[in-house]
Design a binder for these strands. Structure first.
Lengths: 229, 229
DNA sequence: CATTTGCATTTTGGATACAAATATCCGCCC
DNA sequence: GGGCGGATATTTGTATCCAAAATGCAAATG
């Protein structure tokens, strides 16, 4: 069997969870879709047990919803929940950024710079999945100096959710140039130690993404609704 | 249709997870302690499988740490991490409170009032476990009007962690009267719609708890250290 | 003809059994 | 005498099997 790809260092449930996560984030598994354990087990050529643990993990991450004897569904967020996700990102990220800026060193700046370039490259190449990962890494690098592992972990969870919707619509988002500029500007303000301006820009950046995305998701759902009936 | 009389008896893993959670929060399972699946399975008179799922869930909640073939350990936070936990609470709770206050209705206030009384009663009765639950419920009730389920969920996770340390030291905390007053004051400010003052007080309240607790935990660890060597 | 009840199928939940991985301990070599 | 390596024992991870729960369908009854 191919696809087995000895990730042997990672436990089987974790490997499966990673793959499922990617499938959900990429939209391969759609919102609301029910997941049958047995089918997955067959797909991955393992028994249902590791699949169950993987699902449990994703449930904890909020990507799927596990009901008692009724299996797993890919979570579907309401528009207001999607908005909330971005508000949470804004809240957590500005807090991190505010703490990080005074602690940032040259190597932090260098790493951010590097990620920024990779991110722009992946964007130009239309590699959505890679862009999503890099976008998270870039934001993460901005906050690394804050040295706040728990907050970062929380942010990671939240970002997983927002990534789903960003990636779903990245191709049609008109934010190309503005976002690119904003990302650079964030770094510049951080270098200059302009804490409050930097946080304000970050907040605006996330807020703008939120507004754009909400409009796109709303439109998409409206059209799906229209087809559905 | 009358709201579906929730017969939803919780699944075995959930039940086990609840009990384990309580044991960890109450300090019955100490920090750093290793947990053996088989021992637990025997305790609860079930197979190891539901135990595994329960542990996985607690791992996701951050109460235990699961290493590959080396089993589970009760997580032990550094002092700075404990501080971070309280900072997170402060961040999330002020955000919720700020959003909630303008939306609060008479029934919200009434519910808060009621919980406040129960909380004080349980405190007087030295019922630490009950106090912990009520304290969370009270804070939760203050934020219910914000209608932010995801933020609440995140807060719940974070609060689980802080509860551990609060309950560990509640008996020796000298915050009895000040805290009681602050809790009442929070409600009064909310009633009066004094958003910023209320949030400032909330932040100060959590900050004070943090400082007190950090001192107590530091002292406890120092003495344990001294005995240990 | 509609509604309800019972049966069958499907799907998840849990237990036992077996395999893999890790830690421990003893003997051996340096 | 101390450190290293291998065998054993303990513990975790995975698979298969059986039981219980839910859904859908069909038949019977009003």
């Amino acid at each position: 069997m191919a696809a087995k790809r000895a990730i042997t260092r990672q436990s089987l449930p974790d490997a499966i969870a990673s793959d499922l996560r990617e499938r959900i984030l990429s939209g391969d598994l759609a919102e609301g879709e029910t997941i049958r354990q047995e089918a997955l087990a067959e797909d991955y050529d393992v028994s249902r047990m590791p699949v169950r643990e993987a699902l449990k993990q994703l449930d904890a991450e909020g990507l799927v919803q596990l009901t008692n004897n009724r299996g797993a569904r890919v979570t579907r967020h309401s528009l207001s929940e999607i908005g909330e996700i971005f508000d949470l990102r804004s809240l957590l990220e500005t807090d991190l950024f505010r703490r990080a800026i005074p602690q940032m060193t040259q190597s932090d700046f260098a790493r951010c710079e590097q990620l920024l370039e990779q991110m722009e490259a992946s964007y130009d190449a239309n590699d959505v999945s890679r862009w999503g990962a890099l976008n998270y890494q870039y934001h993460s690098a901005l906050y690394a100096a804050a040295n706040r592992s728990l907050t970062n972990e929380l942010l990671h969870r939240v970002s997983l959710q927002s990534d789903r919707y960003i990636r779903m619509h990245l191709s049609v988002m008109q934010q190309r140039e503005p976002a690119r500029k904003e990302h650079r500007e964030l770094l510049r303000l951080a270098r200059d130690g302009q804490v409050e301006q930097a946080c304000a820009l970050l907040s605006a950046h996330i807020g703008r993404t939120k507004d754009q995305l909400l409009a796109l998701v709303a439109a998409k759902r409206a059209s799906e609704e229209a087809i559905g009936r």
